[in-house]
Design a binder for these strands. Sequence first.
DNA 1: CACAGTACAGACAGGTCTGTCTCATTCCGA
DNA 2: TCGGAATGAGACAGACCTGTCTGTACTGTG
Lengths: 210, 210
Amino acid sequence: MGAHGAAEAAREAAADERRTQSPAAQRVLDTASVLFYEHGIGATGVDTVIARSGVAKMTLYKHYGSKDELVAAYLRGRDRRWRERLVAAVAARTGPEARIAAVLDTLDAWLEGEVEEFRGCAFVNAAAELPDPGHPGRRVVADHKRWMRSYLGELSADLGVRDAEALAEQLFTVFEGATVAAVVDGRARAMGAARGAAEALIAAHRPADG
Amino acid sequence: MGAHGAAEAAREAAADERRTQSPAAQRVLDTASVLFYEHGIGATGVDTVIARSGVAKMTLYKHYGSKDELVAAYLRGRDRRWRERLVAAVAARTGPEARIAAVLDTLDAWLEGEVEEFRGCAFVNAAAELPDPGHPGRRVVADHKRWMRSYLGELSADLGVRDAEALAEQLFTVFEGATVAAVVDGRARAMGAARGAAEALIAAHRPADG
DNA sequence: CACAGTACAGACAGGTCTGTCTCATTCCGA
DNA sequence: TCGGAATGAGACAGACCTGTCTGTACTGTG
């Protein structure tokens, strides 16, 4: 069914949940998630995280072990929230066209909901900030992108178009490009263009019925 | 004519040229450019740069002043090389469709030519690694993206389509998305999808002549 | 030879970061 | 009331990074 490493991801997410049952640990993760995204991972020290969350340094290290693992937990949480939101939005639509449209709608709503200044895709940024391929966060980034790619594949297959894989690749490209374009040209313009592009690409993949 | 801040960018590029007339300074910039892209800006210290380029630390600081300015010079050089290559490739084509196709062809050739492991768009990565909006490199990133956006606008206008601005925004989205998709799915697949998407989007913008 | 310019080599200071450790306090169930 | 677990506060070590400084060697020119 699902995408790559779904079971493993679910196990890790569950582990995060267990950890965050502690209010202090929860506060640490919430604070770190905001700071890592807004100011960047490298620019956010553990001292800043503990100061902002009003927590002892030992509490952070007791629950997360290291900054690298805290970063991975931040990315896992963001990935989990995105997947839950996207799957729910898709499930609420009927018809394959509407379900695909829900993907860009969810992205739009997600970007609009960011009270913080929009700083692009957290996973692309994390990949840039974590050049070590062995960093625990890198696997979360790879899983996130592969899941999105395969999820668009599932949605495209339901359309009954000639080459669903090719369409999925194009929709993935538009999806990723919309995030970058939103930083340069603003959310509204970028999302409008992305929506129009997605519709045109789907139409172009329909079997010619004339 | 050109895009935002063209004159200023040209002045800075010329300043870089003058600086790099010194062989030692040239070696520093070349080494730093490879290391900054491959291993990331934050993970590359000035000690590593001077060790790899066989240069004294004072030489680096005499020519570039600070690491931040060295980063900006790295980004300016990369931006300049990309523009020169793209403009030359576009000039070699005849006809508006072929000129737009040259953009993705140039990107494809650029990615293929990277002997190093492909790590995505250097400018997106730099923006992620330099969260301070006042960093000298951030302006280079913004200039680079705005130039690409406006250059695609010029090329789109030559097509004579109904809404060239909307098409340019979509092509920009595909262009940026292709770079991200290339990291996830590989250059060949991503570029194939992007080329197909660009053609379909251009076709969809043509006035219906039926 | 004398001299000036440039570059190499490396020590050094000042700061920041991660991660460990100690000690006091709070809270909660037996 | 007692005891243990979790937490807050902060000192501390070790590593790393940027940027400065001193001293030496090489090169071309008069």
